[in-house]
Design a protein around this nucleic acid. Sequence first.
DNA 1: GCCCACACGGTAAACGTTTACAGTCATCGG
DNA 2: CCGATGACTGTAAACGTTTACCGTGTGGGC
Lengths: 354, 354
Amino acid sequence: MADGPTITTIAERAGVSIASVSRVLNGLPTRQETERKVMAAADELGYVRNAVARSLKSRRTHQVAFAMADVGNPAYLAMLREIQPVLKAAGYRLVLHSTDAVVADEIDVLHSLGERYVDGLIMSPLRVTEQHLEMLAAARAPVVIIGSVPEGTRVDNVRADSRTGVRLAIDHLYALGRRRIGMLNGPLDTVPGAARGAAYREALADLGLHYDEDLVRIGDFYRAEGGRAVAELLDRVPDVDALMCANDLIALGALDVLRAAGKRVPADVAVVGMDDTDLAAASWPALTSVSLGSAERGKAAAELLLDRLQGGDREPRVVTVPPRLVVRASTAGTAGAGTVHGDAGRTKRKEGGA
Amino acid sequence: MADGPTITTIAERAGVSIASVSRVLNGLPTRQETERKVMAAADELGYVRNAVARSLKSRRTHQVAFAMADVGNPAYLAMLREIQPVLKAAGYRLVLHSTDAVVADEIDVLHSLGERYVDGLIMSPLRVTEQHLEMLAAARAPVVIIGSVPEGTRVDNVRADSRTGVRLAIDHLYALGRRRIGMLNGPLDTVPGAARGAAYREALADLGLHYDEDLVRIGDFYRAEGGRAVAELLDRVPDVDALMCANDLIALGALDVLRAAGKRVPADVAVVGMDDTDLAAASWPALTSVSLGSAERGKAAAELLLDRLQGGDREPRVVTVPPRLVVRASTAGTAGAGTVHGDAGRTKRKEGGA
DNA sequence: GCCCACACGGTAAACGTTTACAGTCATCGG
DNA sequence: CCGATGACTGTAAACGTTTACCGTGTGGGC
């Protein structure tokens, strides 16, 4: 682990100047003889370019950061799986941050962009505060946000459409004849929690169903919380016949408790999850789930960022990925491959200046 | 996104030299008046230290790389989940590489250590070739390997004990009265594949069971492969009564196909997975699985690396994480929380010089 | 009143590259 | 045969820090 050779070492050994070494290594025109000597010296010494010095000079790190809200959540992992290869193909390294959805940590990450250790950032905040918006406006490197930001925010943005997603699910449950449709939601002060709660209410109204507070339970986006929430709900509304869950983890927790309570799924209670993670397909009965296109969103975000890194200035773009309902046994009652409902394709539109 | 301020900008505005600015920012002794002026200028300009320039000078990047064999495999994700916070707490950033278990990619990563964009590396190769060993010996930064390396390799190393793990599982199945125990393994040219195959054979022998080639099927470590393999196996040995699967994905694939074939789990066929991933707990029936301590291995690897980054030279260490059998419904026939078999604690031993 | 010690701050070099600019040398045309 | 041209190559500056070293000025001791 001794100090590696530098271009100076090579220059000495080859008997040329460091400028010539640099030129050879970068493929600039050089006399054959010089090239030969430099390459020989470099090979013998096992020279490898120092990335830090290069970055200092070129003001490019060829690194991109991805700030995940939660490393444990399969939905973010699905994004990661898509982001990684896109960046790799373009010659960028991935720096991974985990913020645990803590606002201070997210602000930290945005602040640290000033350190210029990355060329850009992809971030998926659960909550978007005033402070986020300020930091975004002042950010010293391009940022792409996965998740909705207020209209007029000048930032590249990839959105899910959980409103339509919830709608697809509720319509599906309604079509199956369910009328006492409960909801297990996450915290209402998160962007997805708020959106999904509102969409549920709206969907019921459109179907002419009564909105009943007792049918809605709030917990966190974790499995254990899903179990707790459904237990409460069963207490208040024993004859609930369907559950819309704000994510797959909550849904799995619900399945556990429903089973323990002797409820058959889907005969007695149909269950729909959200995010369509790997867990949905693994569970039994396999979980019907609304895919919000985590993979597509990750990919789109990576592409938006690369485009900005290469293209430079342009108006911020908003990409909206449409949801798909993946029907499995937890609602349809038949095992086997899931059926997909919902529109295909991706919607792109340009955001005008703020 | 204009060029940010540098210490030179600050120095001009504060009317002092860049050395003074640097000293103030690093908390070195300074006259109050100077400190005040510098801090004021820095605040007004929104100064943030340039990490690249710092790294060039200090020869420390405060970055560590983790090269995962497969971003899609929950076992590696479990490692990632533990590695991330340990590094973060120590002030290191995480650079994520995905090698897809391709040898050339892994060699690339080892080679790129010479670029010095990270201070160290954690790597989990599926196969360990001659070339790996050469590169490891010549590596320009500390490396920790998750997975077994040949005895005598001078590198920090965190191992699972899949031999004992398989043994725990087979003993468990035997104790349940199973005698026609099949195995669904991954490729034999991988380190885990080879180890698990050998352990299976050994365990059968010790129990006085006949080793039958037809009971062993080889596929890749993916879900679909598990299904394919079990179909083949059922074809040859219809009355197989237990399956040892080389990982959870294979086991889930097996569950799918067993169900489709009308086999009851565990009544007709008991199934054991390996790695005890999130999927094991999510599936139905919940999957009995041998935990190889992915989380603990990740944590141990991160700690070994940090220790070396801080402590400097010492003899390479080998940490072996003991396996645990987590019994769930797919063998025990009762739902509910899993029971854990296997020894606790962690074994550490020092590796002598080569 | 002079010298010394000390505290502080400035100058400059260094980290390892890339690259603008200028210098050298050979060759070619006139 | 001389100057111009062009092809390479070397010198040096720059990227933004940290830090060794030296200079300055103050205060105290004698």
